[in-house]
């Protein structure tokens, strides 16, 4: 690796970078989007289709956050920040559900 020879500590970092599966993630995202667009053609009941769509969206979002936003490669504690936002979202959803049920 002549390009890494000049950098003092870059060899390990560059090797690590090469392993990052950006294109694989992209292909998965594109395929899942195609599946999403065709969920209704499966003829599933409406509620089941919704559950599948929400799961697929969550899978896509998790892939983007983990690989494209590098959260997988960051120190673990950094994930607490978006999780704190999501915790408040959970409270909001619970409150809204209670309101609607009422």
């Amino acid at each position: 690796m002549s390009e890494t020879a000049t950098a003092t500590h870059a060899t390990g970092a560059v090797e690590e970078l090469k392993k990052r599966p950006y294109v694989v993630v992209f292909v998965i995202l594109a395929v899942v989007t195609l599946v999403e667009l065709n969920v209704y053609s499966l003829g599933l009941p409406h509620l089941e289709a919704i559950v599948i769509l929400v799961i697929l969206a969550t899978v896509k979002a998790s892939l983007v956050v983990a690989y494209y936003m590098h959260l997988r490669y960051e120190p673990r504690w950094l994930a607490l920040i978006p999780l704190a936002g999501l915790a408040l979202v959970a409270v909001l959803v619970a409150a809204l559900t209670a309101t609607v049920a009422h």
């Binding site: 950094l78 920040i81 978006p82 704190a84 936002g85 909001l92 609607v100």
Partner: peptide, 23 residues
């Protein structure tokens, strides 16, 4: 760190808009 903190506030912002619409 600052960017991630801002993104956490954005999560809450979008959740409020989506939650209100959904309700």
């Amino acid at each position: 760190l600052g960017m991630w903190l801002m993104l956490a506030t954005e999560i809450m912002f979008f959740s409020a808009i989506i939650g209100a619409s959904w309700t």
